[in-house]
Design a protein around this nucleic acid. Structure first.
Length: 915
RNA sequence: GCCAGUGUGGCGAAAUGGCAGACGCACGGGACUUAAAAUCCCGGGGCCUUAAACAGCCGUGUGGGUUCGAGUCCCGCCACUGGCACCA
């Protein structure tokens, strides 16, 4: 490893970080802000001293990172990957003249801080603050151009006050299926019979329509630990900690009605610029499927069993039915002889974990209820079973089994010897048994209906029409998406702004706190564990929970997702104390109708890891749509363009983890190579969205490149003197740095045509690659420039200045230092030296500079390269053909052959086809 | 099982259907040095031939196809990675 530093990054980097901070260089400006006269943004746009407004501000650009959870372990090399990419683009857009919003904050509620508190008794507030301080220090040391004046922390009451406020907006809304949007619950039409009835019934009706509602949902309860566990804390029906048995236990939970938005969440994916794979993941998660509900009568039971099927055309092949073990009809229809078997089975299933239930390769299990239903088209009696391969939570929790044409039903029928009847004729003579794709209906006729001979699509239409005419079923759409379980039995989260009280009839009911009661701050506790009877930790604070008027506070808290659902909005106006977000500010930053028709709606670019492909991004889209419906934001989608950065693996090509011992700590890298080299390497490794292994020797490569950039500018003798001075008195290093001189070869002269060609090739490459987020090739373009420019005997200051503007987004510290040196010693005529480097206009690419007088023409015979000619650029196709045919090296390949065709592509090549 | 992505030198990678391997790492040779480090210069996919070079042949996971021309487009297969996974 290198001993001598390539250049004094250890002095340069802190120097410029302090400078940017002192100048607030990267502040983004809201309409209404007064622009300081000396701020580089004001100087660049000649707005010094003026009040910013949507009219005088340049176009906006909102570039967002997924904010981190500030863990105790500090930053790892994965974090800065996306952060570097967005920082480079932010700096690029500033140079292009945009008003760039590039903020950072902390997603700081969460389990680790709470678990640490349970172990040590230290309040999560304290450890969270410490972790934030560590993260912030590390992030700053990388030189990212965040606007820290907008920093947010989801655990800060001035932030979560508005998280609670948004919850109240959701709570006070219902989804109107007619208008397909959220509306205030105060406008909910109350049915006439309820209007005159008791108040309790009216309230129950309203509560059943709210977008935030209460339900009994099963959670994992561990008797031995005296606590509720999260899904991921339960392994094979036992607790992860201590290996104690756990049971499913219904508990009162808050839910958010995201299912109401399923259709819009799906449709609007078509309006945003995300990768196809990401959209596909969301589509699969939402899981729309079209089909029909069909009713089956059971002898002696009044209500029919309703099933959902996507293949109503196979109804004639339904030879049995299956209910999920939890289906409410099970106890009604079970015959006495089967009662014990059914109850046993239900209990076995209840004890299984989700994992066990969904384990593939598992044998199908189930029990006959003794009951028979009537197939509505064949009129035949079919047995009704219960089995855990039918899920209670999807569709109607019951299916018609068509074993001939459904894999699961086929397996089940084989195991339990149930009849299998063919009703689809597969194309191409395939075996019909277990065939699940489309085909032609067969054996599907009754006295009044026939599907025979109809292809699947048509048969579906026919049968649905018939079912609807007989009131035996109807067309239905189903979604996999479930309502969002929104409550947690935790301490370190936002308390719900809800109280419970008894109404006149003595029934318990919930009620929202007034907005004036926000923020509702969690009470201090000595013990952060749940109570022995399974109440959330907040229940321990009895003085906080029980209010003087006899009502009691909700003791659940919100999940970690809540704070991250809307943080991108708070950045726009993070210090606003009277509103969650000012409408005028919102309009400037995200709206399409801000008077700038061409502007991107919402966040221009959002970069983060794939691990949030579904949950965070779906939840945030949901909240945004509710806020949109209620008129609080002006776009239906929050994130216009989204890019996932790829994982960085350890040097061994394995996922980084403590147990493998292959974790790379950014601090160590920074110490040896500096922040600029670190940033450059993270981008040079390969395309942003690819998975790629870390390689410390690769860092040395880009570090050497920065050393060459340094030597392109500085005078060697002055640098040697600087180093000797530093060796003599290390305490005065920063002062000695000023003695490093620009080399004499850098002069205020016009570049030659050759030099301009090199420069403009670099401008073109870097500009185009940044637009396409191809950071790795942009860097290689700059390397080519530097390799070339090092050989120049006279180095025109203007060309070097343009290069520094290109380099600045990638390696801002060294670029600033060299810019300062350059401006000190050699006047740069094409640049206004009053404007800071970060706001210098991006150099314009001039295609005329790349024009060559001659060019090397590859000549192929039958597609194989045989010669290269040198021809003038403007040569005609005919002349080029003649020259190619006349070539010494080509002639042997043409001898004795017929020239069939000659393909001449001007600017590309010549291909002679012979036969 | 389903969906998506990726397969190119020793390694990270690059190539609007037009000279495969830019740029970088590692490696080898040279210059500077008492020596090393750093720096600078040169070399570089494989095979075959050759003293060396030129020339030639092969080469982008694999098998086909389209095309004057395919890493790139189309069809089949294989491997790896990620997501979903009894969703009727």
């Amino acid at each position: 490893m290198s001993q001598r530093r390539q250049y004094p990054f250890h002095l340069i980097e802190p120097k410029w970080q302090a400078h940017w901070e002192a100048q607030a260089s990267h502040r983004a400006w809201n309409p209404g802000d007064i622009l300081p006269p000396q701020h580089p943004f004001a100087l660049r746009h000649q707005l010094g001293g003026q009040v910013a407004s949507a009219a005088n501000l340049p176009p906006k650009c909102y570039i967002l990172d997924m904010f981190p959870y500030p863990s105790g372990a500090g930053l790892h090399v994965g974090h800065p990957e996306g952060y570097t990419a967005t920082d480079i683009l932010s700096r690029f857009r500033r140079a292009q003249g945009f008003n760039v919003l590039h903020p950072m904050g902390w997603d700081a509620f969460g389990l680790p801080a709470e678990q640490y508190a349970i172990k040590t008794g230290r309040h999560p507030r304290i450890t969270t603050n410490e972790n934030i301080a560590t993260f912030k220090k590390q992030i700053r040391s990388l030189g990212f151009s965040y606007d820290w004046s907008r920093e947010i922390d989801t655990t800060d009451p001035i932030y979560f006050r508005w998280t609670q406020w948004i919850f109240l907006q959701i709570y006070n809304s219902w989804f109107n299926p007619e208008t397909r949007r959220a509306e205030p619950v105060s406008q909910l039409p109350i049915p006439a019979d309820l209007q005159r009835g008791p108040e309790a019934e009216r309230r129950a009706f309203v509560d059943s329509k709210r977008l935030a509602f209460v339900t009994e949902a099963p959670v994992w309860w561990c008797e031995a630990l005296g606590t509720v566990l999260a899904n991921e804390e339960v392994i094979d029906g036992r607790s992860e900690v201590g290996d104690h048995p756990v049971v499913r236990k219904p508990m009162r939970q808050w839910m958010l009605r995201i299912t109401a938005y399923a259709e819009r969440l799906l449709e609007d994916l078509n309006t945003i610029d995300w990768t196809d794979s990401l959209k596909e993941m969301q589509r699969n998660w939402i899981g729309k499927s079209e089909g029909a509900q069909v009713e089956f009568r059971v002898e002696g039971v009044a209500a029919p069993i309703v099933v959902f099927t996507t293949r109503p055309d196979t109804l004639f092949g339904a030879t049995y039915m299956v209910l999920s073990p939890e289906h409410p009809f099970v106890s009604q229809i079970t015959r006495p002889a089967q009662r014990d078997a059914v109850r046993n089975y239900q209990e076995t299933v209840a004890r299984k974990s989700d994992l066990e239930r969904t384990e593939l390769a598992k044998e199908k299990t189930g029990v006959f209820t003794g009951a028979f239903a009537i197939n509505p088209v064949t009129g035949r009696e079919i047995p009704v079973w219960i089995a855990d391969y039918v899920l209670a939570s999807y569709g109607t929790g019951a299916i018609m089994a068509v074993p001939a044409h459904d894999t699961r039903d086929f397996e089940f029928a084989q195991k339990f010897n149930l009849p299998i009847a063919q009703v689809i004729d597969p194309p191409g003579g395939k075996d019909w048994r277990g065939y699940t794709d489309d085909g032609v209906a067969v054996n599907s006729s009754s006295g009044e209906l026939s599907l025979d001979g109809q292809p699947t699509a048509q048969a579906k239409q026919t049968i649905i029409a018939w079912l609807e005419s007989r009131k035996l079923g109807r067309r239905t759409v189903n979604f996999k998406l479930r309502d969002w379980l929104f409550s947690r039995q935790r301490y370190w989260g936002e308390p719900f702004p809800i109280v419970w009280r008894k109404d006149a009839s003595g029934a318990l009911c919930h009620e929202a706190l007034p907005e004036s009661a926000l923020p509702l701050i969690p009470p201090p506790l000595d013990d952060y564990k749940p109570t022995p009877d399974g109440q959330p930790p907040l229940a321990r604070a009895t003085a906080w929970v029980n209010l003087p008027d006899g009502s009691a506070r909700e003791t659940n808290t919100m999940p970690q997702w809540a704070g991250s659902c809307w943080y991108y909005l708070r950045y726009l106006d993070s210090r606003n104390e009277s509103m969650f977000l000012d409408r005028g500010v919102e309009r400037y930053w995200v709206s399409r109708d801000s008077g700038r028709a061409s502007q991107t709606p919402g966040v221009d670019l959002y970069v983060g890891g794939t691990e949030h492909a579904v949950l965070h991004l779906l939840y945030a889209r949901f909240w945004h749509k509710v806020l949109f419906d209620l008129g609080h934001v002006s776009t239906p989608e929050p994130f216009h363009k989204l890019v996932n950065q790829g994982l960085i693996l350890g040097e061994d090509g394995q996922k980084m983890s403590k147990s493998r011992g292959n974790v790379v700590n950014p601090d160590d890298v920074l110490k040896v190579f500096g922040a600029d080299a670190f940033r450059l390497y993270e981008m040079f490794m390969g395309p942003l969205e690819m998975v790629k292994p870390w390689n410390t020797q690769g860092v040395e490569g880009v570090y050497r490149f920065l050393g060459r950039v340094w030597r392109l500018f500085v005078d060697e003798k002055s640098e040697v003197e600087f180093e000797q001075s530093c060796a003599a008195d290390a305490s005065r290093e920063a002062e000695f740095l000023k003695r490093v001189q620009l080399q004499a070869a850098v002069q205020a002269v016009e570049p030659t045509a050759e030099q301009l060609k090199t420069l403009h090739a670099c401008i073109k490459k870097v500009t185009e690659d940044l637009e396409g987020m191809r950071f790795n090739t942009a860097i290689s373009g700059m390397m080519v420039f530097v390799n070339d420019a090092l050989a120049w005997t006279v180095k025109p200051a203007s060309a070097l200045a343009d290069f520094l503007v290109l380099l600045q987004p990638f390696a801002p510290h060294i670029a600033e230092e060299l810019w300062e040196m350059l401006s000190r010693h050699a006047p740069v005529r094409n640049r206004d030296s009053a404007v800071a480097l970060g706001y210098q206009p991006w150099p314009a690419f001039d295609p005329a500079r790349l024009v060559e007088s001659a060019w090397e023409v590859p000549v192929q015979v039958n597609g194989k390269l045989r010669d290269k000619l040198v021809a003038p650029t403007g040569i005609s196709a005919g002349d080029l053909e003649k020259a190619a045919l006349a070539s010494e090296k080509i002639r042997p390949f043409l001898e004795g052959k017929n020239i069939k065709k000659v393909i001449v592509v001007p600017g590309k090549l010549v291909n002679i086809v012979v036969g």
